[in-house]
Design a protein around this nucleic acid. Sequence first.
DNA 1: CTGTTAGCGCCTTCAC
DNA 2: GTGAAGGCGCTAACAG
Lengths: 339, 339
Amino acid sequence: MPTIYDVARRAGVAPVTVSRVINESGYVSEDTRIRVREAIAELGYTPNRLARGLRSKQTQTLGLVVTDITNPFWTTVARGVEDAASGHGFSVILCNTDESEAKQQQYVDLLLEKQVDGFLLVPATDDVSAIALVQERDVPVVVLDRHVSLAVDTVRCDSEGGAYDLVTHLLELGHRRIALLGGSPAVSTAQDRIDGYRRGLAEAGVPVDEALIRQRDYTQEGGYAMTQSILELPDRPTALFAVNNFIAIGAVRALRDAGLHIPDDMALVGFDDLPMALVVEPFLTVAAQPAYEMGARATDLLLTRIRGDGAEAPIEVILPTELIVRRSSGVGITTAVGG
Amino acid sequence: MPTIYDVARRAGVAPVTVSRVINESGYVSEDTRIRVREAIAELGYTPNRLARGLRSKQTQTLGLVVTDITNPFWTTVARGVEDAASGHGFSVILCNTDESEAKQQQYVDLLLEKQVDGFLLVPATDDVSAIALVQERDVPVVVLDRHVSLAVDTVRCDSEGGAYDLVTHLLELGHRRIALLGGSPAVSTAQDRIDGYRRGLAEAGVPVDEALIRQRDYTQEGGYAMTQSILELPDRPTALFAVNNFIAIGAVRALRDAGLHIPDDMALVGFDDLPMALVVEPFLTVAAQPAYEMGARATDLLLTRIRGDGAEAPIEVILPTELIVRRSSGVGITTAVGG
DNA sequence: CTGTTAGCGCCTTCAC
DNA sequence: GTGAAGGCGCTAACAG
């Protein structure tokens, strides 16, 4: 592997001049620049980023830590991050925690050791120790999607508002008994969506029936089981609110297995839209989150922090969700409407 | 940021001793080991992998370059890679090319600069220059999923056999006119699947009608358009073979929009299964590829190459596909059968 | 506009 | 079992 010394020798200049040509930093005459470029091409020289990072203390690399790369929502976020980052010459290392505290800690340590310039992190649980560690090390972090009990930049969606919109939509259609199929209480979005659900009912003057609220996790199995448990109630609801896309799919399957028709026998609404490429027939009424934009915005914020010219105080960016009304809630509309 | 020098001073030893403790290399007495460990903990020392990599010429990092991170097939492969790699202390940098030659070249260059120890790469097209470059640099590469015109380790699935199984299955059900909705000719799997299709028909003594073969790309839009074009034929086929999961979904939508019922009006089979978490009702007969295993096997192979104790000659691993018969092909079976 | 010097943090090599 | 010396490839800081 040739180094800048080899290039320098061949071009008849000092190594530092080669460095300047590569990084387009400092003054280099057009003449020597051309000679250096030629030498680089002739030798097939490739810069060594380890050495560069060691010396300059910048790796031009971001760490992205998500909870579930299997969920299209997160791959979409990742694309937003990737596009925004590469537009500024940064690359991204993607890590998957499976909502595990231990894995999260492990990846944060690894990324720290790899000297990433900043973190984009979806907290696996409500434990903030990993994030606190990053902050202690003075490495910029932006928390994605969820909020934590820590002063830190956050970019997330309006889960409370999205849930409110969905419940209000169901109430307007005449539903009064609406069950909630929830996620883990350790995840802030799950809690926010319950809050929005309660507010929607409260504003409509409909009392909350605690027997209609379930909490498990963001999985299809969870959605299936919660739906089954709801269906066993003596006094069944007329509508279900699934707080995540996987839960919604589990609910659809459980309803189908129980021989119930959507929306005639049971209305259903969900959170997070599925990509068009993956779904045969979009029929689920959802509060869609701007996943791609969330990734891009968070990255922009992180990059300003890395540049060091942002405001001092932590910022919280909350992106609106979009209510997309389709067949599953029981209206004949299939086009999107604002929300 | 503390360095090994700080740790060494605190523990009253030489830096090299700290290094030995961290890497568990060489002899260190139990006594000093404990003192060093304590100093590390007290200072909150984190090793710097850039420095380590620069010196040792190993980064314990693999580059994984895939064509479409939006496709659940690739995220599953990625998980297989990730699990196998982290089991051996390696981390993975995941890059997405969107089937673009230029992006692939860009990422390969970047990963080379980052000094990854090895590559797992899904070729974006049939251009092999990027792979050749990696080989010139003496960095081990394993090609995933597709085969290329180059002597290189490859781990892929038996596309030809899977296609053969699907076509044979349709033929056994009595179909004689089977259309093929294909992918880009620049992608070897697309070609292999056509080959399997032709062999299946040939062995059954059914002549190939070239008017029933379409080739576009692995997208839902492509599947939709190809299906429409097939439906315009004066002499329609009775079954469709979609060579990829996205194409299959596009076909389902096109058939539905045309008011045709699956499988009564038109049978349909596809390639690649969709994860259970994402699909409401699995009804598509498919040749499923062992995505996770493909990633894991490829990683194992790559790691032996990195260790340098593998055979010299390139290896080609071909994993079998599994025929999963469901409703869409027109049989009343919904359980999996071997293939 | 170009060059010299030094050192980032670590590990390899050799010495004791 | 432990340490001293040196250098991986690059760029910051300072000259000129």
